[in-house]
Design a protein around this nucleic acid. Structure first.
Lengths: 213, 213
DNA sequence: GTCTATATAAGGATAGAC
DNA sequence: GTCTATCCTTATATAGAC
């Protein structure tokens, strides 16, 4: 007996998205643009093309929609970075470049998530049921241990790797989360191919200058 | 005829603050913690110790309170940085260190403003009547011109100064705006004296390594 | 699964007493 | 200058028809 939905229906990037998936997509844009309190169920419903009460047929509450939006994007991000970081066949610098590239591309193509994550990082009272920093912490510490081993092995110059990671991610996340601000600050489109290439090259050379022995 | 209020009454840091000033202080904390939409007039009024309608005797609307909170802090920041940047008696590197120190200390002691500014930078629809990026732009370009002159004079290595400033400020602003997130991520208090010293030293050495000829 | 209608609460702002 | 009482709007969520 054929299942018209299919087991994978609703996944991100689906070409024949379920209503549930359409809600997630519309909600992601709204939450990124206006934050949790600044987004009403009417806004999301309008983005989907249905009425407000219909949303709550698919999700029990606004919080539930928000939670799903966040968790889907967060697990996507973690999965991609972990995947890039686990192919430890390469030498130290190639590994750094790969993770940097993967993170960069993810942020570029998921800038809505970047802005939502930023809002969560700023808020004192998170709308999620968990501590974002504590969730990322094991991955962060694993990366830290890896840097420590590379430095001990002499493949990297000894550095404050923790601060370097905070600086690198802070700079990248800021660029994408604050793109609207940069659009007013700079005399160029911050999201043009040229600008993004320039950002990636600068970040790469920053890591290189800091780490090369 | 003595004036019990004094011409300067209500200025930030006042020891005998007016109600208007108390409102600004309470509002600044609320807007930083919860954002514009996440803050109700009840929240602010509770912080002052008065009732909601009493707020609107001092300010015409919630937007007016928000605008005043933001403009006071923004002009404070610009004034301090411009003051540090205009004493051009020093050589290039001392100038960079001074502006970096002044910015760092300002962010440290005005982390509420940093979080509000970040929220404004993220939001597509600002609650202010002006473009934050465009407002800062002349100061940003002045700094850029200065870097250009220093590099041309050979006192700095030739660099992508624009990206360097974006990275530096992005990293600093992120650290302070996301302190709550860092508290969960790191195995230490991100706002302890030690942590802040470590951050400043790292940022300083990052600029030094990038700029020294 | 989507709709209209409705319950209920909260928010911003105003009127007017003190 | 602060208060209570009130108006109006918007928001989340539910009930029940189709």
């Amino acid at each position: 007996m054929p299942n018209t939905d299919g087991a994978e229906a609703g996944a991100l990037g689906d070409d024949n998205p379920s209503t549930r998936e359409l809600i997630i997509r519309a909600a992601r844009g709204c939450f990124a643009d206006s934050g949790f309190e600044g987004t009403s169920l009417n806004d999301i419903a309008a983005g989907v093309g249905i009425r407000r009460p219909s949303l709550l047929h698919h999700f029990p509450s606004k919080d539930a929609i928000y939670g799903e939006v966040f968790e889907v994007a967060l697990s996507d991000w973690i999965a991609q970075v972990e995947r890039a970081a686990s192919g430890e066949i390469m030498n130290g610098w190639e590994q750094v470049e790969l993770v940097l590239d993967v993170s960069f591309q993810f942020f570029r193509h998921n800038s809505d998530f970047v802005r939502i994550m930023r809002r969560e990082a700023i808020d004192t009272n998170s709308h999620l049921g968990f501590d974002l920093g504590a969730t990322i912490r094991p991955h962060f510490e694993r990366a830290l241990d890896w840097f420590e081993r590379e430095m001990t092995a002499g493949r990297f110059r000894r550095q404050d790797a923790e601060q370097l990671m905070l600086t690198g991610y802070g700079a990248l996340l800021s660029y994408f989360s604050d793109a609207a601000f940069l659009d007013g600050l700079l005399d160029r489109d911050p999201l043009s191919d040229d600008s993004l290439h320039r950002l990636l090259e600068h970040t790469r050379s920053l890591f290189a200058a800091t780490l090369e022995p």
